[in-house]
Amino acid sequence: MKIFGNKKTTAQVSSNMATKQVRYEALVKALHGDLYRYAYWLTRDKQVSEDLVQETFLRAWRALDSLKDEKAAKSWLITILRRENARRFERKRFDMSEYEEASIMDTQSTTTEQEIENHWLREKIAQLEPEYSEPLVLQILGGYSGEDIAKMLNLNKNTVMTRLFRARNQLKEALDEAPVSRGQYNG
């Protein structure tokens, strides 16, 4: 009687579970930062980003077996996160494209020249249209090529390159217009 011949033993199951657990933990440790930052630039909200990253990793856990190539893990997670983000808009539609001053990171408390410049730049990045900032974040932070980004965003490569051009062009113009000393110097 070997009707249930393909049934795994308990030991096998728990060892598979253990392997899955190890993979998952490695994935979380290696990529949660990148994903959080990507979520932040997508939503420009710290709390929403955290929630998105949590949802993303939960879905990733459930679908972990479908991830065969570890090298593709990051773009796989980014795809899940973008989908989760879109779902968020289906659930409750509120205008996120509007630039919210309050939600921009306050890093002024550790005031160094570098931090001031970062803060200023963050505001400028946040002011970009999402369709420009998203490929830019993927390119600079994610290190993806134009082709990769095109695949992830379901756009053609020329569109992506044009958006990247416009994003940098706008930032460069903003930089060039700004006075040499930015931010506030106290003393």
């Binding site: 440790k29 710290k46 955290e50 856990w61 963050r122 990045i125 600079i140």
Partner: peptide
């Protein structure tokens, strides 16, 4: 150089406890 600056600016601080939170939530969920 601008890209390098942008990269630094984009690297917003990640909450310290995010990693632990993620692992905790997963262990509950599973």
């Amino acid at each position: 150089q601008l890209d390098e600056k942008l990269k630094q600016a984009m690297k917003i601080p990640v909450p310290d406890d995010l990693c632990d939170k993620l692992l905790l939530r997963q262990s509950f969920a599973s």
